[in-house]
Design a protein around this nucleic acid. Structure first.
Lengths: 324, 324
DNA sequence: CCGGTTACTGTAACCGGTTTCATTTTTGCA
DNA sequence: TGCAAAAATGAAACCGGTTACAGTAACCGG
């Protein structure tokens, strides 16, 4: 319609070569007339780029992910990338793990916590495919950028707060799911705070909360049944804190008068709990933003930080005993 | 490597024709050896199908979306579709609205609330492209399947509860954002309940909460300043309820003793509020599941329901005055 | 033993763009 | 005015599959 070859149209679309102004005009006019939109798929095939980044999550449902998604979506869409999301946890057990998101339909992959296993990470790394990890370190020897948060320092601070300000002496720590990296780092912070105040480490005070409301609820019930003595609980994450508060309340234990409670994450609901939860703010939206930045750098072949650690912040509310 | 043509490999991959068992074996062996994975993009181009469904949201960040995403992800991944997500709200104002998700890179589109405007809906409908709407009706005359929830009946029930059980006489209703369909339906339910109990409709008792915590907070503050008298607030949604509770508490008004509060949605935090929020459960995960089902039917050319209304359920907690 | 099916597989066009290379047209300057 | 270099464009291969069509070999009943 514009009286030019497809090659010229392509050049016009990509501003590849300077076109004669007159030609450009004719192409533009024809495009308007025909309501022409270039076919992304054909483009992908020809350029071997998809302009899409893939996000792998274990379980997209968690309310924990809202800020993460917000961060990721914001910067990826700003950079002109589409977002392909797949929840690896939802793959029906037994079913052979078919990888829907791979080097073939994305330009790069974002993996949260343990969404991608080490075998796959190694393979992707070997073929030089861009991957950025969030809240998860790569297998040793494999070089993949990582975005994490200051788990240990955050945990240390909040436990120190319980010790110094509220004079708590027997502080329970609730671990997350087995193998969870966040959880182990937080546990190290917990231990560090104990050491710094010359408190002995008592293994009886460490239990499993699994980063899960109900699990934590049951765990606290058990602690009470076994008459484990404690005057504070650092719940590992905020989800667990809900269960902890409930279990304590049902047992007639007052928070924070009898027992201080502290969480980690600063989820949306933390300030809504009763009492409002003292916790560590995890900059999870920022994690998402930073991860996409790094991934895009990787895709473009620019320099990337091997490891970015985002700062956490102590948020004092009432569940520890402050502001009463 | 298998000594066959690409056509045969393609046939093997798609079980198109019966292959000679011996040939199939050779192809399979070669595929294993070469670690061959068919290139989805090339496939898409050839078949004109993407095996991807697009989800359009105004703002992916809301915690409201977690269950929706869970529902959508679950059934789409089960059906073998990838999920492409785009937040139309994040498009930086002023920037020409470039449609990243279209008929060219998805097989069908899911739109929540007002993510897709009527112009685009009309266009998509004209070219016969599969679209399913959630919490939003299509422009009149346009035939697009819709998934909605029983807003009016839910609202009627909860307002009737406030009237019959708690003998509330002056019940405030907080509207959502202007033009929001959920909000108007809920307002109709509110009015219906008033009528059914021969209560007059008092326009002074209707204010705007904007489905937003802070907005609702300020609105209630204003009601108090203007000394509008009320003994209950139906907050329109749960987010607003947070702000309402806070404003009332700061004014020294006791909930539920002085004023009953009721929400809508049954968000994850509803039971965590103090007092726990009486609300209407909105089956939002189910909305997501159903929407994907309908969309897939549409894509396959099967029959689809023009309009599915999912039931809501009254959830009695403490903020209305029950269970004390 | 033969013609007609049937079963299997190869050839080549096609999906809708991008890009290399070649060709044609301009342009700049001696 | 002439010619080399630069600018603009077209031809065709290519991305990696699918699929209509055609061809060959094995199979069948009469």
């Amino acid at each position: 319609m514009a009286g030019v070859s497809v090659a010229t149209v392509s050049r016009y679309l990509n501003n590849a070569t300077l076109l004669a102004p007159d030609t450009a005009l004719r192409v533009q006019r024809a495009m308007d007339e025909l309501n022409f939109v270039p076919h992304p798929i054909a483009r992908n095939l020809a350029t071997n780029r998809t302009n899409t980044i893939g996000l792998l999550l274990l379980d997209i449902g968690g309310n924990f992910y809202s800020p993460l998604l917000r961060g990721i979506e914001a910067v990826s869409s700003e950079a002109g990338f589409d977002l392909l999301i797949h929840s690896t946890g939802s793959s029906h057990a037994g079913n052979a793990r078919k990888r829907t998101l791979t080097e073939h339909n994305t330009d790069g992959l974002l993996s949260f916590t343990d969404a991608l296993d080490n075998v796959e990470l190694t393979r992707l790394n070997r073929i030089g495919f861009p991957v950025v990890l969030m809240h998860q370190s790569p297998p040793s020897g494999i070089d993949i950028p990582v975005i994490i948060i200051e788990n240990q320092e955050g945990a240390r601070q909040i436990v120190a707060h319980l010790i110094k300000v509220h004079h708590r002496k027997r502080i329970v720590f609730l671990q997350g799911p087995p193998g969870n990296e966040d959880s182990s780092a937080r546990e190290m912070g917990y231990c560090q705070a104990l050491r710094e105040h010359d408190f002995p480490f008592d293994p009886n005070l460490v239990a499993i909360g699994n980063f899960d409301t109900e699990y934590a609820y049951n765990t606290v019930k058990k602690l009470l049944i076994y008459k484990v003595e404690f005057d504070a609980i650092f719940t590992g994450d905020d989800d667990s804190a809900i269960g902890v508060l409930q279990a304590l309340q049902e047992a007639g234990i007052r928070v924070p008068e009898d027992v201080s409670v502290a969480g980690f994450d600063d989820s949306i609901f933390a300030r809504l709990l009763n009492p409002a939860l003292t916790t560590i703010h995890a900059p999870i939206e920022e994690v998402g933003r930073e991860a996409v930045h790094q991934l895009i750098n990787l895709i473009r072949g620019d320099y990337t930080e091997p490891r970015i650690t985002l700062p956490t912040e102590l948020i004092i509310r009432q569940s520890c005993g402050c502001n009463r």
